[in-house]
Write a protein that binds this DNA or RNA. Structure first.
Length: 314
DNA sequence: AATCCGAGCAACCGCCGTCGA
DNA sequence: GTCGACGGCGGTTGCTCGGAT
């Protein structure tokens, strides 16, 4: 079964467009329009291309008034702001940036903005006294040993920006409860409040259980009493929703002392100044979109399942 | 000079929603 | 109500190029 292909795969050309093909497509559309039928267009235009390919080429490159080149700060700000609100709805974001295509914005996000915002890997853990002593004694990085295989060899602790971040400021009170991983996660229902309840641990590394090709940022959020939360799912939830679902998107987090120190800040400002409280990783997104994740779910994810066991041991 | 590696970007893939027969 | 065709979209891939080694 399966759907019939939209074109004869054997007879269509793939890969980069030549200037001649561009000219044919441009001339045809300018003369006749698309006719509302992209599938039939390549044949009419004398192109050995799939209709979808023609559509993409036109929309992303040949169409008039397309803006190429570097994104301005203002454009960056808009993208970040909208991403925080609606997630990876690139086509909608593109409507707010005249001349920019969804593909352009998506690429820009994936190659620049995501790293700019999320690359601020942060890790602030206040270990129990015994553990602190152990860490000092062995001159090891201050996070659970099980993360040694997950965190990069040189974790970017030096670039920690938590103190400047109203949302993240004050995090770091971490009670090393070995049962955390065993607790059930109610990702969408938790009242977890990182300001009061736990720690946000963020790290970079290519061994994290991430399906992203760049293996960029992964984030784990611990709740001291209420289980383990995986902060993610920017696409499904958007940052604002994510914060809500985590219990920090409501006004409670604004009531915290650290927030009051910066009363003028708002969510958009947080984003534009480098908030790093979300992740667009698709794998994490999938998990966090589940209503409930228990240890069983974690174990089904190879890497974290293993880490969960190690965390228990630790 | 050759090779490696990562960033950037164009293009492809496959899923989903809509619409008309 | 069902099914197929199509457009739209987001995720991903793979090529190119420039800088580092």
């Amino acid at each position: 079964m399966g759907r019939a292909p939209c074109c004869d795969k054997a007879n269509v050309k793939k890969g980069p467009w030549s200037p001649e093909e561009d000219k044919k497509l441009k001339d045809f559309i300018e003369k006749y329009g698309t006719g509302g039928n992209w599938i039939a267009l390549p044949q009419k235009a004398g192109l050995r291309r799939c209709g979808k390919s023609c559509r993409l080429r036109w929309l992303n490159y040949l169409r008039p008034n397309i803006k190429h080149g570097a994104f301005s700060d203002e454009e960056d700000r808009i993208i970040c702001s909208l991403f925080a609100r609606i997630g990876s709805r690139w086509s909608i974001i593109a409507t707010q940036l005249p001349g920019r295509t969804d593909n352009d914005i998506k690429n820009h996000w994936n190659t620049k903005l995501k790293k700019k915002l999320l690359g601020v890997a942060a890790c602030q853990i206040k270990l129990p006294p015994q553990q602190q002593a152990r860490e000092q004694q062995h001159q090891q990085p201050a996070f659970p040993p099980f993360l040694a295989g997950v965190a990069p060899a040189t974790p970017q602790l030096s670039s920690c920006t938590l103190p400047q971040n109203p949302l993240l400021h004050g995090l770091g009170e971490f009670s090393a409860d070995p049962d955390i991983f065993g607790s059930l996660l109610h990702a969408q229902q938790t009242h977890y409040h990182p300001m009061k309840d736990g720690v946000v641990l963020t790290f970079e590394g290519d061994q994290c259980c991430s399906s992203a090709s760049d293996g960029s940022l992964n984030q784990i959020t611990y709740g001291r009493d209420e289980g383990l939360g995986f902060a993610g799912g920017a696409r499904q939830m958007g940052l604002e929703s994510l914060l809500y679902s985590s219990g920090i998107g409501d006004n409670r987090w604004k009531e915290s002392a650290s927030w009051e120190k910066q009363p003028s800040a708002d969510l958009e400002q947080l984003i534009s100044t480098g908030g790093s409280f979300f992740s667009g990783e698709s794998s994490l997104a999938t998990w966090s979109s589940s209503k409930t994740l228990g240890l069983g779910s974690l174990k089904s994810l190879p890497t974290l399942g293993r880490e969960a066991d190690r965390f228990r041991e630790w």
